[in-house]
Structure formats: C-alpha cells, structure tokens
Design a binder for these strands. Structure first.
Lengths: 335, 335
DNA sequence: AATAGCTATGACAGCGCTGTCAATTTATTC
DNA sequence: GAATAAATTGACAGCGCTGTCATAGCTATT
C-alpha cells in the first residue's frame, strides 16, 4: 500500500532512475522534468524509503551521537543542534548513551557500527578523548567529529569554543564594573577546560595590571558542593574579594549559597559569576552572570561537518562564539 | 568487503535462510545447526545489515523517542532506559527533539515516520497529551507508548509512576520523624502531577489525624524561584511549620536558599523535602530528601512494551516503583 | 554535412536480507 | 515396518531503491 518510486515514475511519465535523481537533488535533470517529478511526488505524497535507499547506496542516512554521562543539559543541547542539521539534509539522529565505566561499552559501539553503518558519528566529551573509541572509529573508517576535545585529532576538524577567551572576557567584564579584588575558583583539574579558564582569568588580570591574591584562588571540582567549600575558604579569610569568578555555574551557585549562610548577600556584598549558562544559572536567585556556551551550535556544526561537502575539512577547528550573559549576580562593588 | 549472510551460510554449510533463522532467534532450528551457524558468524565477525533486514521484512529495527523541552535530566534518563531495552532486542533509538511552539513540529514527525518507518514511538510528556500527535501516530498505524500522560489513551498501555502514593509516603516519612506542623508547596497548576502530589499529602495528613494549616500551603510553579517565594511566604508568617514538603526539587532548593537568607538553617531549624531526585537534589547542600522517580525504568518499560510480544498489552498501565531517598535535608524536629 | 562532445534519460542488475512454500529429514503412531 | 505427523531445511523471488553503463537527443566544431 505504500507508494514507491515506481508509482511516482509512472505518474510523472519518466523512469525510476530519473525520479531517483530528482529526489537526490542530482544536477543532470532538466528543469522541466524535475518539476514534473516533484509535482508527481507531492501529489502522491511520496517519501523515499530509507532502508531501500540505504541498501542500494550503502549509506544509512543516519548519524549517531555517542555520549557518556556528562551533564544532561549539555547532551540535550547537542542533540537539538545536531537534529537541526540532520533535518536539513534528510538525515536522522540516533543516540547511544554509553558508560565508559562499564566493561562492555565498546561492544555497544561495535554493534551500532555493525548494524547500522551510520554515516557519521558525533563524539561528545569526554568520549572524544578516549583513544580506543577514536581508534575503533577510524579503523572502521567511520568519520566522526569530536566536540570540545582536549586531545589532539590529527586532520579531523573539531568543534569547540574558546574557553580561555571567554574567561578573559568575563574577567574584563568584572573589572569593567569596578572590581579590583577578584577571587577565582578553578574547575576540576582533570578537565582541560579548567586550565584554559584559569589561564584566561590570569591573562585578563595581568593585562589590566591587577594583582591576583593567591588566597583567593581555590581549586574546586565543578560541583555545587566544591564551589560552596571553595567559597567558604575565600570568604572566611581576613580580607575578602569583592567578586568571585567560579569556573562553572554549579560552583557559582555553591558560592551564592555559602555567602548567604555567612550573612553576605549577593550581589550587594559580593558579586559572583559562573560559566556555562546551565539551567541552574537562570533558576537560582539571584540569577547568575555567566558565559553561555554555544552547545547547540556545536551540535549543529558537528552534524553539518559530517553531512556537507568536505570543502571545510581542511580547517582544523571550528571555534564557535560564546556569549557573556550579564545577570543579577554581578554588579559594581559598593562605595 | 563486508561480510554477508551468504558468507556465513557457506562457512556453516547451510542455506542463507537457516542463518537468517538463527540470527533472528527463530525456533525451528536444531540445536546442532544453530550452534554451527553461531560459530561461523562469530568467526567471521558477522553482523546483519539492518537496512537489508528492514527492506526485506518491512521493519526498521528502530524506535523513536519524541520529546519536547522537558527537563534535560528526565529526557536523558528515558533515553538511557529505552536504549537498554533496545540493546536487548537488537534495536536502536532515534531521537526527535520537538518544539510544540513551532508551527512545523508536526512536519518533523511526519518526516520521521515517512522516511524511517520506525517500529514504535515513545512519547515523553508533555507530547503524549497532544491530541494531534497521538492521532497522527494512530492514523499511520504506528504503535506508541505514552510516558506519564495526563490524558486518557484508550487501549494503549501507558507507563507511569504513582505520584499520589509517593507524596503520601513522603508525608508519612516526615510525620514519622516527629513533625506535626508541615507546610506544602504545590506545583504548577497545569501539570497533572501537581494535583496528585497535593492529594497524597492531604491524604497522609488526614489519615494521621494531622491538621493542615492553610497558611502553609502555597502554590508554586515548579521553579527554584517560585519555591523560594513560596518558602518565604510560609517562613515569614507568625507561626512556622517544622517541615516543608515542596512538590519538586527545584522548589525545595529554593526553600533551602530562602531559609538561609532568613537566618534559618536546614535541617536544624526547618526540614525540607523535594520530589524527583534531579541532579540538583544531591548537589545542593544540604542534600535533599526526595522521591526518586523511576524515569529510567519508565524508558526501559516503554521500549520493552514496543518491542516485546504483545501479551502485556491488555494491561492498561504499568506503574513503576519510585523510591524515597532520605538525605540530609529532613530530620526530626528540635526538642 | 559529418564528427565530436555534451547533456538528459533509461534499462537493468543487484544491494543483503526475509517471506513463502515446497522438500527433506526425523519422530511418532498403530 | 508402513503410514502419518512434526520438525528442519532450502530454493527462490523480491523488498524499494541506486550504481553502472548504454542510449538518445543536442549543440558546437571543423
């Protein structure tokens, strides 16, 4: 009962092959025929069958996104971006949640590649830094795009943001508000972003001629609790900064909560900034000044790189724009 | 270069059809042949090609999960559960993020169904309550399973949890700790869960012979901020409850933050409980006593219902077990 | 006018599997 | 042990599409 390419061909008075050409936007079809075919297809409400297409062309019209447990919001945003790109190209997105702590996680990838022969893979962090994953993919000859990897990927283009520049901008923003005494909470030492963000902070302080008080730089772990702990260390000292830049939102929220506990109110007594613009940043009170990561754009770009012509594949990295979101938690210092 | 069913057949010394039978776990194959085929398949490292399979059998070995913007954590958990079920059945999960506020969101579903002929659809809330979606699916004759729907779905089995019972249990837990003066923050009036949770609270209070102080029951919107607002209303009153049960974690976290601001510490001065066990619940400080929703199990069950034999399809609803997670935010009242 | 060099189209096989149905082997019955 | 029933197995076509290559129709060139 389903409508096949044969039906469309008959109706348009052309061969199946010509219909196929039109459906695939190939160019050696006259404008007249193309129109005829398109009309026929529309009238019959025809949609090509991807399984058949895939079998004949040994493409699957599917790309996969592999992810490990990172923050759900991040993952979902990549999915949204990638889906948008897929839609533009008649592709669909298949997801494979993985848990690298499980011994069989590689099997799931093998399975995916064996069954589906996906045409490309998006590798969300931290999977893109697992050598075994990358090796499997290249051995199988499946093209992939790493998102925000910390490792090197040879000729393969990667998609990321500029953490260092973003941290620099945020620091300049704080300084621009009039702050001179600024604390910093570092991220988890194992995440490559941590070092970059800290680097950006230092660079901005340096170029503004501001001194960094080492007592106000504390290591955190990107968690709420570690942010609260770090905040306590900074705020309980004899001298206090007028602003604290936490290198992610969870930690910033932790600082806000500990500040309240210490009788300090944000932003009146102390300004706080985060990084990432997670949902938490705008739900917490006061809402956090933060850096919006272009996660959705990264998903989009990654999928697009897999699907579009390879012209761009000599570019080694696509650095997408972040955005500084100024909200309530960071204002000019008192007096 | 890829290995086909023919290679396996040759190697095992049987026909393609027999290999096919083994690969599909059909039963009319002798144990001996089955083993022979399995060995051959393993030795050749054979994996069936889903496109070919799909074309021949008019199944796609794909199920889709449709979701609209609900909380990322919820969505990801459903994906994880559904993926697990898919793996057991040789299926894969394809995701379609939708935005019902966009006029073209139905087109994306049409596209998905037209191209891929997925064998089933998981409908996350609130999509499962959109009549146009449900209608399209049944018109197309695609089977679907609604997760935690608030609307009615005829003969179709639904997967959900028992919000009312969970709220009752939480209330009894609080009462069991020794609290008698308990406040409640309702959820967003448009969500069906809100009423159920409130109902559970009332029922538990009633059956324990406890009076509900109307000043301590405030409407929220499931957001951090609304929780903080509601908390303030309750805590600034002349009399104060010794515990507050917020009907989700975001609001509970809001209560915790406002309590600190009012100079009350949790749980010493006031106990707070949430609902959902979102990541926030365990990252916040103190960690929230809450109800773990069986979201992952719901994803699993939904996928399983789509994939397994239809024996269970006369059951109209699968109510999965939640779990009360007692953490730091809720303890016995003072004195 | 004859040739070459295009572009536009079509015929046909076959991608790798499963459904159908017939053939074969094995088990069961009297 | 023949007859019948049941369990295994295989031959073959065909799922709906695209790749390959041949052909037809044109324009440009000499």
């Amino acid at each position: 009962m389903t409508i096949t390419i044969t039906d469309v061909a008959r109706r348009a008075g052309v061969s199946m092959k010509t219909v196929s050409r039109v459906m695939n936007n190939e160019n050696s079809v006259s404008e007249k025929t193309r129109q005829k075919v398109k009309d026929a297809a529309r009238e019959l409400n025809y949609t090509p069958n991807l399984a058949a297409r895939g079998l004949a062309s040994s493409k699957s019209y599917l790309i996969a996104m592999l992810y490990d447990i990172p923050s759900p919001g991040y993952t979902i945003d990549i999915q949204k971006g990638a889906t948008r790109a897929c839609r533009e190209h008649g592709y669909h997105l298949i997801v494979e949640p993985l848990d690298v702590s499980q011994p069989d996680f590689m099997d799931h990838i093998e399975n995916l590649l064996g069954h589906l022969r996906v045409d490309g893979v998006i590798l969300a962090p931290p999977l893109c830094d697992r050598p075994e994953v990358v090796q499997l993919l290249s051995r199988r000859n499946v093209s992939y795009i790493p998102i925000a990897p910390s490792s090197h990927h040879g000729d393969i283009p990667v998609v990321k943001m500029d953490d260092e520049r973003a941290a620099r901008e945020m620091t300049h923003h704080i300084i621009g508000l009039g702050h001179k005494d600024i604390g910093f909470i570092k991220g988890h030492p194992r995440h490559s972003a941590s070092a970059l963000r800290y680097q950006g902070f230092r660079e901005a302080m340096r170029s503004s001629g501001l001194r960094i008080n080492p007592d106000w730089v504390v290591e955190g772990e990107f968690t709420y609790r570690s942010g609260a702990e770090a905040g306590r260390r900074i705020l309980e000292g004899a001298e206090r900064p007028t602003a604290i830049f936490a290198s992610n939102d969870d930690m910033a929220a932790g600082v806000v909560s500990i500040a309240a506990r210490l009788g300090l109110s944000v932003p009146e007594d102390i300004s706080v900034c985060g990084f990432d613009d997670t949902p938490l940043a705008s739900s917490v009170w006061p809402q956090l000044t933060t850096i919006r990561q272009p996660v959705r754009d990264m998903g989009f770009k990654a999928a697009e790189l897999l699907l579009k012509a390879r012209e761009e594949h000599n570019i080694s990295a696509f650095v997408l724009d972040h955005e500084l979101v100024a909200r309530e938690s960071c204002v000019a210092p008192k007096e």
